[in-house]
């Protein structure tokens, strides 16, 4: 029996997805796979149904914003877990700021439903094919996406709290 480790998984992904696999690395024991956004759904689908890897548990979906990476400002991060092999896989799909859309994986994992709504709520990332994409923890009337880096946490009009005094 072949041992299923990170290297083996990367090779297998490489065979199936070729150029769509942008980068694979390991950080703190978890395999990082960067995939083009169009193929993210297909990759997760494949991981879920692959007879060897069996990454059939979706641990987490979240978003992130990297304002300095031009053309790939937003990132959707999926954590998959294979209970059988006890391997965690992190999948990242970068999407541009002017068109932040990605296919929803709610049809694959019902668990993604609220997590995608949360990501939409905070980053404005649109999940195409999501059954009920609306804000979840913030009020519906909110007209901005609060976790984006352009919204500062503190009131910018305050003058008594200068950043330089706080090492920021």
């Amino acid at each position: 029996m072949t041992t299923i480790n990170n290297e083996y998984i990367v090779n297998k992904v490489q065979q199936h997805f070729g150029n769509a696999l942008k980068e694979a690395s390991e950080s703190y024991g978890i395999l990082n796979i960067e995939i083009s956004a169009e193929k993210a759904y297909a990759l997760i689908d494949w991981f879920k149904h692959d007879s060897e890897i069996k990454a059939s548990f979706l641990t987490d979906v979240c978003g992130a914003q990297f304002p300095d990476l031009v053309g790939k400002e937003f990132c959707v991060i999926y954590h998959l877990h294979s209970f059988i092999n006890n391997i965690r896989i992190r999948i990242k799909a970068f999407i541009p700021k002017d068109n932040p859309t990605i296919a929803s994986i709610t049809p694959l994992f019902p668990a993604a439903n609220w997590q995608e709504r949360e990501t939409f709520d905070f980053y404005g990332i649109v999940f195409v094919g999501h059954p009920n994409l609306k804000r979840i923890v913030n009020v519906d009337e909110m007209d901005y996406f609060p976790l984006r880096k352009e919204y500062p946490l503190e009131d910018g009009t305050r003058t008594d709290k200068e950043d330089k005094y706080f090492g920021r």
């Binding site: 992130a64 609220w114 997590q115 949360e118």
Partner: peptide
């Protein structure tokens, strides 16, 4: 930096309450 660039909590309640 001095603070996390991004911190996400995977909250079990939030995920299973969907069901």
């Amino acid at each position: 930096g001095r603070a996390p660039f991004r911190l996400h909590f995977r909250r079990p309640c939030f995920i299973y309450y969907q069901a």
